[in-house]
């Protein structure tokens, strides 16, 4: 059986180790997980995990400096691609973070900050375990019950132009999209690498998915 190569994109941001460790924990024996910032390895990988933490601007700068913008845009069109947290947000066209940042424009739409003035008791960042309502069927939801809790940490959320790509929503004062899915691409605002059994199941589903 051929070996499947899964690349975790390393652009110097965020805790890649926990993403790689969680994926390794559930990876089938023919699957090899690598953490890389080499554009050629990204292009040759069979599937991509695109994690991220921190600020949008720093993230885009790091992607630019490591020469990874083009390989990411290309991969997102053609092979199983899992975006996580900031790795969801920078797929969008534009973020209002850091006084406005142009993002990868792989998914049309914006990234906006929580404005919860109407809910003074709610805290930002949205930090902790919240439910994801699955709004479409998807192979990555296999064995993950409806309204399962995942671990979130973020102050911004995505607003895609096309409502049909929303695969999951979450409520924190407002109800907002937390999972987007389009063809070979699946991107989630929560951190599956920190979401115990449901998160591990999501990685397992992704590693078995052919996009």
């Amino acid at each position: 059986m051929n070996q499947k190569l899964v690349a975790v994109v390393d652009y110097g941001m965020g805790n890649l180790r926990s993403v790689a460790k969680a994926a390794e924990h559930v990876a089938p024996t023919n699957t090899r997980i690598i953490v890389t910032h080499n554009p050629e390895e990204i292009e040759s990988a069979d599937a991509i995990i695109f994690p991220g933490q921190g600020a949008a601007k720093a993230c885009m700068n790091a992607l630019f400096e490591t020469g990874m913008i083009h390989p990411i845009q290309k991969s997102a069109q053609e092979k199983p691609f899992l975006g996580i947290c900031m790795g969801l947000q920078v797929l969008m066209s534009h973020s209002t973070e850091n006084e406005g940042v142009a993002c990868l424009d792989i998914i049309k739409g914006d990234v906006k900050q929580f404005e919860l003035n109407a809910h003074p008791s709610l805290k930002v960042p949205h930090m902790g375990w919240n439910q994801i309502q699955q709004t479409q069927e998807h192979p990555l939801w296999h064995n993950i019950p409806q309204n399962s809790r995942f671990y979130f940490v973020h102050s911004y959320y995505v607003q895609p132009k096309e409502q049909s790509i929303i695969a999951g929503t979450t409520t924190h004062g407002i109800t907002f999209p937390t999972v987007l899915s389009h063809k070979n691409l699946f991107a989630i605002q929560a951190h599956p690498e920190k979401s115990a059994d449901h998160g591990l199941q999501l990685f397992q589903n992704f590693l078995q998915w052919n996009g």
């Binding site: 930090m127 375990w129 919240n130 309502q133 409520t171």
Partner: peptide, 8 residues
Amino acid sequence: MSLAKRII
């Protein structure tokens, strides 16, 4: 449906 309070 909302954020759960955490035990640490």
